[in-house]
């Protein structure tokens, strides 16, 4: 999709820092299950522009949190951790799977 750059999980933090430096705000983080992998899309906005970072992670992999760069990210990352079972490291506030009080844990896994 246009405006979305594909990156590897390793370069997420440095890419997010660059975008943050350019004055973008965080719009949303969204995970999608594609076959056996997960695709995570980060959207950033500046005025009416929207750009994105996209990466693929394998099940069981851990990703780094960007909540130290973008404060509101902790909610989205907790949501992904709760619904998809992707472990997010170093969040500023980690609910440890208790953001949503749902009966079936990790429904999208």
């Amino acid at each position: 999709m246009e405006g979305i750059t594909t990156i590897g999980p390793g370069s997420l933090v440095s890419e997010a820092l660059k975008i943050h430096h350019d004055g973008y705000r965080l719009i949303q983080i969204c995970a999608t299950k594609i076959e056996d992998e997960y695709e995570i899309t980060y959207s950033f906005g500046k005025d009416y522009d929207m750009i994105g970072l996209r990466m693929r992670v394998m099940p069981g992999a851990e990703i780094m949190s960007i909540s130290n760069i973008y404060a509101p990210a902790f909610l989205y990352e907790n949501e992904i951790q709760d619904l998809f079972g992707i472990k997010v490291k170093l969040m500023t506030l980690d609910y440890e799977g208790n953001l949503y009080r749902i009966e079936h844990k990790k429904p999208f896994q």
Binding site: Q28, C30, T32, K33, I34, A71, P72, F74, L75
Partner: peptide, 16 residues
């Protein structure tokens, strides 16, 4: 559909 995701405004307003 594979996925529908809705980011509602209140979700974004909570940190503020």
């Amino acid at each position: 559909l594979d996925r529908v995701r809705v980011r509602t405004p209140t979700f974004a307003n909570l940190p503020g």
